[in-house]
Structures are given as structure tokens and as C-alpha cells.
């Protein structure tokens, strides 16, 4: 057993030293019931680069993505680190049940895949994949993505704090679920509370349609 591991480790080391660029065909599917994804940013990058890290405060660039759907800052982080970057493959919003595909050719050394997009309507929820190691072996791989909370904005669930309701289903008159940020680092999103009162209650979100449970997105990665 131990010998086998030595050999395997040696072979992997050999391969990674001579890794060539790979073509990845990536498909992102929105698994939620009634949540939209804003423009997606994806990048293949080196082991030193991250677009977010749990239990660590969000960067200003991630905050812009999570609160406003603006991917330019995160895209710059990736680009500045020499990553191979794909922006907005769905050409706008990705609705529930929809998929978008793109081809990402990663350069030698860019062996990790990260993906992010804001979830609407929310305060600062985003779908995230942090540094998934791209397999060197050809094949089709499936990765499920969770919903993260950027920890940068209290989840009051009020229309005034949520940039858009793409479904045209914004509530109004909510008193606000909370004014506090419990956890100011990037963490698993606790979920939407919502309520059943479109013109009042504590939330401007709907408690039967705007909720989700993890996972919220499916990534299918075909490595050639």
C-alpha cells in the first residue's frame, strides 16, 4: 500500500511538471427554485490565487460581486494573477433550471478553477467555487456549488437593499429581518426567511419561492 502511494505520488509529480494547457468545457446549471444568477465569472488560476475564502473577510472586489453582481473587480484579481478568465458566459442572467456552457483553455500552471456569481434577489449571496483542482485526467466531472454569504451586508431582505428582482416579484413594506451581520467573514448562507405578506411582514422576499437549500448550482466540467 505504502509503496503504491510512493509510485503514484511520483507519477503525479512527473505529470504536473509537464502539464500542458487543457481545454475545459464547463456547464453551469442553476438548480434553485426561483433565484437568478447574475453574470458569472470563472477563472483557471494558480495555487496562490483565491477569489474568496471561508472564515476570511471578503475582498472589496468580492463584495461588489456579491452585493451588486459586478464581476469586474473579481475578474481583475484573476487577470492580474495570470489566470485564464471567462466573463459573463450566459450573456446576462441565468434563471432557475437554465444552463450555460463555455470553453476555458487553461495555461500551464493554472490548475485550479474558481467560479462566482451573485444570487438574486438577495442582499449578498453568491454561488461559489473556491480553487477546485482541475483533474489532469480526461473525463467528465461534476461539482456541486453552495450558496455563500459574503458577510458584508446584513440580510434584511428588503427591496431597498436588493439590486433587482428579475422575476418581477418584489415585495414591499417589510420591516427587515435583521440589521446585524452575525458573521462578517465569507460563510455558508443561512438561507432566506421571507414571509407570506407581499406588502408587509418582516421581509420583501417570499417564503415559499425565494428559498433554497444547498447545493444551488451544478458544474459539469469536461476535461479533454
Amino acid at each position: 500500500m505504502t509503496n503504491k502511494h510512493f509510485i503514484t505520488a511520483g507519477l503525479l509529480g512527473l505529470f504536473s511538471a509537464t502539464t500542458q494547457a487543457q481545454d475545459l468545457t464547463v456547464t453551469v446549471t442553476n438548480l434553485t427554485h426561483n433565484i437568478y444568477f447574475t453574470p458569472i465569472v470563472a477563472g483557471a488560476h494558480d495555487s496562490a490565487t483565491e477569489i474568496f475564502e471561508t472564515t476570511t473577510a471578503a475582498t472589496a472586489e468580492l463584495e461588489e460581486l456579491a452585493e451588486g453582481g459586478d464581476i469586474s473587480g473579481v475578474s481583475s484579481i484573476l487577470g492580474n494573477a495570470g489566470a485564464d478568465v471567462i466573463e459573463n458566459p450566459a450573456d446576462g442572467l441565468l434563471a432557475s433550471g437554465e444552463s450555460t456552457s463555455f470553453v476555458l483553455s487553461n495555461s500551464s500552471g493554472n490548475d485550479y478553477l474558481s467560479v462566482a456569481a451573485m444570487m438574486l434577489p438577495t442582499n449578498d449571496a453568491f454561488i461559489g467555487l473556491d480553487s477546485w483542482e482541475i483533474p489532469s485526467e480526461a473525463g467528465t466531472y461534476t461539482v456541486f456549488l453552495n450558496a455563500y454569504d459574503a458577510g458584508t451586508e446584513a440580510n434584511d431582505e428588503l427591496a431597498a437593499s436588493i439590486p433587482a428582482f428579475p422575476g418581477g416579484d418584489a415585495g414591499s413594506g417589510g420591516s427587515g429581518v435583521t440589521t446585524e451581520i452575525s458573521n462578517a467573514t465569507v460563510h455558508i448562507h443561512p438561507g432566506v426567511v421571507g414571509d407570506d405578506d407581499a406588502e408587509g411582514g418582516i421581509s420583501d422576499l417570499d417564503n415559499s419561492s425565494h428559498r433554497w437549500l444547498n447545493p444551488v448550482a451544478k458544474l459539469t466540467v469536461v476535461v479533454e
Binding site: 453552495n146 429581518v177 435583521t178 455558508i188 448562507h189 443561512p190 438561507g191 426567511v193 444547498n214
Partner: peptide, 10 residues
């Protein structure tokens, strides 16, 4: 309250 809610993974 809302603050103690969680989803997986924890």
C-alpha cells in the same frame, strides 16, 4: 433568530 439558522455544509 434568523442569525442561528444554517444550511449544509456547516
Amino acid at each position: 433568530t434568523y442569525q442561528q439558522k444554517f444550511d449544509n455544509p456547516v
